[in-house]
Simulated assay, not measured.
Amino acid sequence: MCLMLQACASTSEPAHAGNPLWDGWYADPEGLVFGDEYWIYPTFSAAYDDQVFFDAFSSPDLVTWTKHERILDTTIVAWADSAMWAPSAIQKDGRTFFFFAANDIQSDDAVGGIGVAVADDPGGPFSDYLGRPLIGTFHNGAQPIDQFVFQDGDRYYLLYGGWGHANIAQLNDDFTGLVPFEDGTTFREITPEDYVEGPVMFVRGGRYYFMWSEGGWTNETYRVAYGVADSPFGPFERVGTVLEQDPALATGAGHHSVIRVPGTDEWYAVYHRRPIPNLGRDHRVTAIDRMEFNADGTIRPIVMTTEGVAARPLR
């Protein structure tokens, strides 16, 4: 079932998405471009026991959004029962692969971690690809959550980690497992200063930008920082904070992702924030604003807005 979500605009001004992008409580959004559409895959923000499904949203222009309901849920993933979090998607060989966390495991004795689903269409329906977690135990102290798939040439990496630790691992060709590095290890820690969770990586100007969330996800300390290196393995020294609360607008801005318009140097940050007044621990909504760079390649502070961004068709 799909529901069209239209943004309103006057005839004298360009259409803007407006923030939040749509009704409902959603967090941890990953923004992507697949073909001539933008896609956002968020976490359904609710009590852990109610986080048993994922919705997705698509748009031709960042303004008009279509909701794709329950593209994956715990009735499809037999090993998952709650806390389905922070999806990350990528297309390969004509299919869409959807990485997700489930069950909020607290030790290696629990069942859960990072799983993979697959579909022929980015709007699903998805099926469980492995029938088990891809990563179901702790490595280098990193809780297996907050996965981010990163393509670098012909290699595909999985960045992930909560509990203040970030790992990078290399996916094999069909995404059924991981490929050890040259030194024989499979999980390499790349944790920067003040890292908490929510890793994101992209390349600009030949350099690797690593972004992450800091602070506490339930309060106003939540924010986004970044570092830059010449390799996806770092080391990433913290440059500074680029997205944080605006007490006049919203608090707890973080767990973001980045959209680059193909063939351009136009960038957007998709993130969640806590509206004021806030109605509870899980009251998080999805927003989008511009992300711009200085001449030296540093990222300018991302300004939270209520109007969001202007229409930007891909066609």
Score class of each variant (00 low, 15 high):
M1A: 13
L3G: 02
A9L: 01
A17H: 13
L21Y: 10
W22I: 08
A27Y: 10
P42G: 04
A46H: 14
D49S: 15
F54H: 09
P60W: 13
P60D: 12
D61W: 15
L62Q: 13
E69T: 11
I71S: 12
T75K: 13
I76Q: 14
S88W: 12
D93P: 08
G94Q: 15
F97V: 10
A102V: 15
I105R: 00
I105A: 00
Q106N: 15
D109W: 08
G113L: 00
I114Y: 02
V116D: 07
P125S: 05
R132D: 05
P133A: 00
F138P: 01
N140A: 02
Q147H: 08
F148W: 11
R155G: 12
R155T: 12
L158N: 02
D173T: 15
V179E: 14
P180G: 15
T185G: 02
T191H: 03
E193W: 09
E193I: 13
E193R: 12
E193G: 05
V196H: 14
E197D: 11
G198Y: 04
G205S: 12
Y209P: 11
M211T: 14
W212F: 14
E214D: 08
G215N: 10
G216H: 12
W217L: 00
Y226D: 08
G227F: 03
V228L: 01
R238T: 11
V239Y: 10
G240P: 07
L243T: 10
E244Y: 09
Q245A: 09
D246K: 14
G252V: 02
H256L: 08
S257E: 10
V261N: 03
G263L: 09
W267F: 15
V270D: 03
R273P: 00
R273H: 07
R273Q: 09
I276E: 02
R281S: 13
I288D: 06
F293E: 03
F293N: 04
T298V: 09
I299M: 09
M304V: 11
V309Y: 10
A310E: 15
A310P: 09
P313G: 03
R315W: 06
R315N: 13
